[in-house]
Amino acid sequence: MKPKGWKELKPGAVVTEAGSAEKFKTGSWRALKPKWKEENCIQCLFCWIYCPDMAVRVKDGKRGEFNYDYCKGCGICALECPGKKGQKAIVMEEEGK
């Protein structure tokens, strides 16, 4: 998309389009990447609740794969994950490994 010139901007930087944050992909900021281990997942959806962005996909009440376009690697999901029998369902790994 061609960047807008100053004459095309909304006065006062007011965002008038609801939900437009979806267009702003911030996944490239990440240094650590969460990895989902489905075998340890109890479907509590804590990760979905705690994720400050929208990096955890949920469909029909079931957890799906991460959407890394919005994951900044904060690690909150991995911290909150209760896992199964002491085994975490989300672990943080170094990006690029």
Binding site: P3, A13, V14, V15, A18
Partner: peptide
């Protein structure tokens, strides 16, 4: 509407 967005070097 949203007020007070972060506007960086691009805008």
């Amino acid at each position: 509407v949203s007020y007070g967005p972060l506007i960086l070097t691009d805008y």
